[in-house]
Design a protein around this nucleic acid. Structure first.
Lengths: 213, 213
DNA sequence: CGTTAATTTGACCAAATGGTCAGAAATTTA
DNA sequence: TAAATTTCTGACCATTTGGTCAAATTAACG
């Protein structure tokens, strides 16, 4: 019976590893998001992936290695959003796109955002190098772009760093704190329409706030 | 030697319990902030409080009880900030005071904010009742106030909920993500001057963003 | 002082933890 | 089909976990 099931859902090839890793990584992401690295247990991850713990350790020898892979995936998603900032040099459009993209990621991949939040709260034991290199470089570069907009009088003078922090926090809040938002919304997740309003409001307040609109 | 030390730092009375609990709660707050409830260990808390683990369990029988007390403290601090919103019915002043107060709390008590964030990320296993009662009531009430400002044409029409989320996320970001901010600030915490600028920027963007200024 | 109550702590325990391993099962290759 | 390789898993292990306890120490009080 098990054999049949596997034959159906998989192409029964070398790609079995790929599929299995994907399932495990997804389970791991949700457990790490909810309990942090120390709080997560490999048996909980195995259970959520519906495989024996020993099988999990066959694919990922240690909890550390598994966590590292999860964090890598998240960082790659983050890099995607970063790109949407760079596609345009006009403040309104660039910021609108960026905020939209970050809001979309928060809705589609809240677990990833939570793992990231946990990691930062823990003082980034695993991703400190990312922060100091990739994130720092990207931030400095975007700060320059925003500063130029200010110098050109296209937006009000605000410290670009704090503007970025405001965008990051607002957009990520909808992922990290979605449980609180849900509770305040009568126990139901935000509908597509509500989420669109949240997105529009965030964009509007930021753009008006810096005098870009 | 130990006796002398205790004689000096304490009034050596029944208040010994009060002082000891305070020390333990502070240690517990920082460990829970960093590792979450599941990830925190009682021996780590004991070590940080510089007492044997058995002594910790004398004051707080279970990890749960200790965590509950920590969360209670945080919620009380949060209630303080809530008050500063209510002291005034004028949008600019009310929001300015509220944001300032929340930023001050993030600077003075970042650990508490982190514990709160962890708790929400974990879907509020301990404080769900707070969310559904006190927080929900307070939020609904403040939403009404903001809605009235909108109806009176004193601020632009935005959904008050999302405005509140923006304020919460922005202000709490300076606590929860202070490690990331520090890293992007060349490894040094924000100076008082920088923090003041961050505060001013946050207030300015929000107020301008809703057309209150 | 002596008695009573509160505090402190090393030693201990059952349960859970991350991880191992040998062998079974399945799959690929020859 | 047979051999080789990959995948799977129950049983196991050393360490750590939250928590207990009895005995020692300290403080409070008449």
């Amino acid at each position: 019976m098990i054999k049949t099931e596997r034959a159906i859902k998989s192409n029964s090839k070398a790609s079995i590893r790929q599929e299995k890793e994907k399932i495990i990584l997804k389970a791991a992401e949700s457990v790490f998001a909810e309990y942090g690295f120390q709080g997560a247990t490999t048996s909980m991850i195995a259970e959520r992936a519906k495989i024996p713990k020993a099988n999990l350790h066959y694919y990922f020898p240690t909890k550390q290695a598994l966590y590292r892979r999860v964090v890598d995936n998240i960082f790659n998603i983050w890099l995607q959003a970063a790109d949407s900032f760079d596609d345009c040099d006009e403040p309104v459009e660039a910021l609108t796109r960026y905020i939209e993209k970050k809001m979309d990621i928060s809705r589609e991949n809240p677990m990833g955002s939570k793992v990231w939040a946990n990691e930062i709260i823990r003082r980034a034991p695993v991703i400190q190098d990312y922060l100091e290199t990739t994130l720092k470089d990207w931030t400095e570069s975007r700060v320059s772009v925003i500063q130029r907009w200010i110098d050109q009088g296209r937006i009000n003078p605000v410290d670009p760093h704090y503007l970025l922090y405001m965008i990051w926090s607002t957009t990520q809040h909808y992922a990290d704190f979605n449980h609180q938002i849900e509770t305040l919304n009568g126990g139901k997740p935000l509908s597509d329409k509500q989420y669109q309003t949240a997105k529009d409001n965030a964009i509007e307040i930021v753009l008006k706030g810096i005098g870009a609109r």
